[in-house]
Amino acid sequence: MTHALSFPVPTSVGSLESYIQSVKALPMLTPEEEHDYGVRLKQDNDVEAARMLVMSHLRVVVSIARGYLGYGLPQADLIQEGNIGLMKAVKRFDPDRGVRLVSFAVHWIKAEIHEYILRNWRLVKIATTKAQRKLFFNLRSLKQSLGTLNPEEVRAMAGHLGVKPHEVVEMETRLTGQDIALEGNSADDEDSFSPIAYLVDPNAEPAVKLELEDTARRHTEGLAAALESLDARSRRIIEARWLQEDGGSTLHDLAAEYGVSAERIRQIEQKAMQKMKALIGEH
């Protein structure tokens, strides 16, 4: 059975309430319907089946997104990011595993919302590893009911999450820091300064921006060409050490992977870097 449903998208405060109400009005799928749509999507790549699976679970995204309102980010944006996670889950859904889509999708919805929060919360990249990300969200939930963590609590959380105690303290400091208004108070002394006065980008001029973009493009092309010039092992070592978002592999990790010493990996890395620098300098 096919329901003629549109895919509403929240864009403003006014439409957000309408969106939430329309999402709540969408019919839930029975286990049999969900399995049928899942099979059609998996076997025939049926777009309509995928749409039905997404539409029937939009209310789940709204419910999860509400749990992240404390970060000060727009609810509509949280919902849209969660919807992206839902669509990723639907794409990977296997109806023959005997697991309902909602159970499978929660992970993908939360993961996408987490990524959005980390990219945008106070415009600061505050968590770069999996352990730090877990620390960020655990501390955020704790701060709703606790004061400053004492040394014993800091050590316990650090041990549980696999991070250093000073990382817990640093993250707590960032979470409890106060936001500063960019614009100064109009009643302030005329000689006073607000952050907006010294946050002006000196590279905002169009000509400068074009020059910077051209330089960045040439550097990117040079890096790609330099990587391409390396042998497979050297390229793998450089990519694993320097081009990973999670902090990269250690010398010992790669030494175990290739069955050589960490010093040998360091030598290969150093030689590859020297070759790349020479090639990039030519671009």
Rank of each mutant, 00 (worst) to 15 (best):
R97G: 15
K143C: 06
E172V: 07
A278V: 11
S56D: 04
Y71A: 10
H219F: 12
A131E: 14
T2L: 11
K164W: 00
V208W: 01
M273F: 09
E190Y: 01
T176R: 15
A4W: 06
L175T: 11
E221A: 11
G159V: 04
T148S: 12
E228P: 00
T176S: 13
N138Q: 14
G67Q: 12
P206E: 11
A216E: 12
S15G: 03
M276N: 04
E221S: 07
A25H: 01
E228T: 07
S12Y: 08
E282Y: 00
E48S: 11
K209T: 09
E213A: 14
R92S: 11
L53P: 01
R40W: 01
L26A: 11
M1F: 12
L123R: 14
L146W: 02
L146E: 13
M157S: 02
V39I: 13
L212K: 12
H114W: 06
R119Y: 07
H57V: 02
M171N: 03
H252I: 10
R264D: 03
E282C: 00
V168K: 02
S229A: 13
M171R: 03
G72E: 08
Y198M: 09
L142F: 08
E172R: 05
V163M: 05
G247L: 08
A204E: 13
I117P: 01
M1W: 11
I238H: 02
L279P: 07
H160S: 14
E257F: 06
S194V: 05
A76Q: 12
L139R: 05
L123Y: 11
D253A: 02
Q270V: 07
S145N: 09
L279H: 09
E257A: 09
T215Q: 15
G147E: 02
F193T: 15
R266E: 14
A49E: 04
L223N: 03
L69V: 11
D44F: 12
E263Y: 00
N120S: 15
T220F: 00
M28S: 15
L199M: 15
I280D: 02
R119Q: 14
H166K: 10
S234V: 07
R140F: 14
R119N: 10
E211S: 12
R155A: 13
S18F: 00
L86N: 04
L230D: 06
T148A: 14
L210P: 00
H283M: 15
I237T: 06
K130Q: 14
K130E: 15
L210W: 05
D46M: 08
W108G: 02
L41G: 01
L118A: 06
V61S: 00
E239M: 08
H35Y: 13
L251C: 09
S192I: 10
D94M: 05
E221P: 00
A204N: 08
A181G: 03
F137P: 03
V154A: 06
K134V: 04
R155T: 13
E211G: 02
A158H: 04
E205F: 06
T215S: 09
I79M: 06
R233V: 15
L161Q: 06
V169G: 02
P165T: 11
A240C: 01
E211A: 12
T11P: 00
E17D: 13
N150A: 04
A65S: 15
D189S: 12
S186R: 13
L53Q: 03
M28I: 09
